[in-house]
């Protein structure tokens, strides 16, 4: 059973960070959809509800997503539907159901670096940065590589570059976690290929991205992605199958991007 001994609702992010670092076994609460599954004991739970982080804003250069914005907010936000071929709404809209997506938050999902994440795969294919209270602002790809620190993810920024993107996933049942997912994007001649749910966390397939950027054909580039990345087996699929599907999904995503004008 979940145990929360103490609960705080800080009025400022400084205060939240202070509690996080000062108390033993403290944790920042996200949407809490996965919280009840474990039998965790949290000495001090930190709720960010009072920090006004539940928003999606757009300015001239960026779309800014607050950590407490939900997946449903992403799914329904007009700017996110409009930009990047709506890749972000597309990446989240098959996850469980609306009542789940109204609970799950962007900040917690990105911060947790879940291997099965659909959103991270799509975000990585865009020019995404994250802002951490202590760690500061950095590209999402960099954040994904860093080891987990006690910190608070406050915002996600996506640069409005005009990238064209496509998201693909393969699932057994349509409400299941993905067997594999992939996102491919293109800005002028700069391509990005991202593969997630391998089942480990999403990464950029650099060789494949380079090949596409250098104008190599899609099938070869998709093959390169399957070759350069590692895959493992779990309940949803074997490593061998994932590797084969990587090629298919990357090819499909790249083809869709190519077809967009």
């Amino acid at each position: 059973m979940l145990k929360i001994l103490d609960l705080v609702q800080p009025e400022s992010i400084d205060e939240a960070y202070k509690v996080l670092t000062e108390s033993h076994k403290s944790a920042v609460l996200g949407g809490c959809a996965f919280l009840r599954m474990g039998s965790k004991t949290i000495n001090t739970a930190i709720d960010l509800s009072k920090l006004d982080l539940n928003y999606i804003r757009e300015d001239n250069d960026y779309i800014e997503i607050g950590a407490m914005a939900t997946f449903r907010d992403i799914e329904t936000h007009p700017a996110l539907k409009e930009h990047f071929n709506g890749v972000l709404p597309k990446s989240v809209n098959n996850i469980i159901g609306v009542q789940f997506r109204n609970v799950v938050t962007v900040g917690a999902s990105v911060f947790s670096k879940y291997g099965f994440s659909d959103l991270i795969t799509a975000l990585l294919a865009l020019d995404t940065e994250v802002e951490l209270y202590k760690g500061g602002r950095m590209p999402l790809a960099q954040f994904m590589e860093e080891s987990l620190q006690k910190d608070i993810l406050t915002k996600v920024f996506i640069k409005k570059t005009g990238r064209i993107a496509s998201y693909q996933s393969l699932r057994n049942s349509s409400s299941d976690f993905p067997i594999l997912n992939a996102a491919v994007s293109k800005l002028d001649n700069n391509w990005l290929v991202v593969v997630g749910a391998r089942p480990t966390r999403a990464v950029i397939a650099t060789n494949a991205s380079e090949k596409l950027s250098n104008g190599e054909d899609i099938s070869n580039s998709a093959k390169a992605a399957a070759e350069e990345l590692s895959f493992a087996g779990n309940l949803r699929g074997s490593a061998e199958y994932r590797k084969a599907m990587c090629e298919v999904l990357v090819k499909r995503a790249a083809t869709e991007v190519m077809q967009c004008r």
Partner: peptide
């Protein structure tokens, strides 16, 4: 495990899992 929808209530009008909302 937050995935059956039986406990759905509205919070400020939005359908939400009450089993996963503290």
């Amino acid at each position: 495990t937050s995935c059956c929808g039986l406990c759905t209530v509205w919070i400020d009008g939005k359908p939400t899992l009450s089993c996963s909302t503290l």
